[in-house]
Computed example of a mutant assay.
Amino acid sequence: MRWTSLVAIYFLFVVASAFIMLPFGVKTDEEVGNELVPGQARSAPHRFRLGRHLLRAAVLAAVLTALYDLNYIYGWITPDDLDLYRRIVG
């Protein structure tokens, strides 16, 4: 696999990881004990640390990319393994 393909796959995993991890580790103002500002949504996070969130997403994406590349090299899971229709029908 080319290194450019690996970088592209890594960034796809970064974006997916960032969206998947959004609800984890977030506390609202009610949970912290602060009063809500008029017009503020109850679900708004008390403090959102974008840098920490992106760092966690980057680390998770590195692990997922490594697993993806190892699967590409060693062929642990092939497309035939994912063809559930063929297993059920025939």
Results as ranks from 00 to 15, higher is better:
1 M>D: 04
1 M>K: 07
2 R>V: 11
2 R>W: 01
2 R>P: 12
2 R>F: 00
3 W>R: 07
3 W>G: 07
4 T>F: 09
4 T>L: 09
6 L>Y: 07
6 L>E: 07
7 V>M: 02
7 V>S: 04
7 V>P: 02
8 A>Y: 08
8 A>V: 11
9 I>T: 05
9 I>A: 13
9 I>W: 06
9 I>K: 07
10 Y>D: 02
11 F>G: 03
11 F>M: 12
12 L>M: 14
12 L>P: 00
14 V>P: 02
14 V>N: 07
14 V>F: 12
15 V>C: 12
15 V>R: 10
15 V>D: 10
18 A>V: 09
18 A>P: 01
20 I>G: 03
20 I>M: 08
20 I>T: 14
21 M>T: 09
22 L>D: 04
23 P>R: 02
24 F>L: 08
24 F>R: 09
25 G>C: 03
25 G>I: 00
25 G>Q: 06
26 V>C: 03
26 V>L: 11
26 V>I: 13
26 V>E: 07
26 V>N: 05
27 K>W: 14
27 K>F: 15
28 T>H: 12
28 T>I: 07
29 D>A: 10
30 E>K: 15
30 E>V: 15
31 E>K: 14
31 E>Y: 11
32 V>R: 07
32 V>I: 15
32 V>W: 09
32 V>Q: 12
33 G>M: 04
34 N>M: 15
35 E>P: 02
35 E>I: 00
35 E>R: 13
36 L>T: 12
36 L>K: 14
39 G>Q: 10
39 G>F: 13
40 Q>E: 15
40 Q>M: 08
40 Q>W: 10
40 Q>L: 01
41 A>C: 10
41 A>Y: 10
43 S>E: 13
43 S>W: 09
44 A>F: 10
44 A>M: 15
45 P>W: 14
45 P>D: 14
47 R>G: 08
48 F>I: 12
49 R>Y: 15
50 L>N: 14
50 L>G: 13
51 G>M: 09
52 R>V: 14
53 H>N: 06
53 H>P: 01
55 L>F: 11
55 L>E: 09
57 A>W: 04
58 A>I: 08
58 A>C: 11
58 A>W: 10
58 A>L: 09
59 V>D: 05
59 V>G: 04
59 V>I: 15
59 V>A: 12
61 A>F: 07
61 A>R: 02
62 A>E: 06
63 V>P: 11
63 V>C: 14
63 V>D: 11
64 L>K: 06
64 L>T: 04
67 L>Q: 07
68 Y>E: 00
68 Y>W: 13
70 L>A: 08
71 N>L: 01
71 N>C: 00
71 N>V: 00
71 N>S: 01
72 Y>F: 01
72 Y>E: 05
73 I>A: 05
74 Y>P: 00
74 Y>R: 05
75 G>N: 05
75 G>D: 01
76 W>P: 01
76 W>E: 00
76 W>I: 05
76 W>D: 02
78 T>M: 03
78 T>K: 12
78 T>I: 01
79 P>T: 01
79 P>H: 03
79 P>L: 03
80 D>R: 04
81 D>F: 05
81 D>V: 01
81 D>E: 07
82 L>K: 02
85 Y>P: 00
85 Y>E: 12
85 Y>F: 12
85 Y>V: 04
86 R>G: 01
86 R>F: 06
86 R>P: 00
87 R>Q: 08
87 R>D: 09
87 R>L: 12
88 I>A: 06
89 V>G: 04
89 V>E: 08
89 V>R: 13
90 G>C: 04
90 G>K: 06
90 G>E: 06
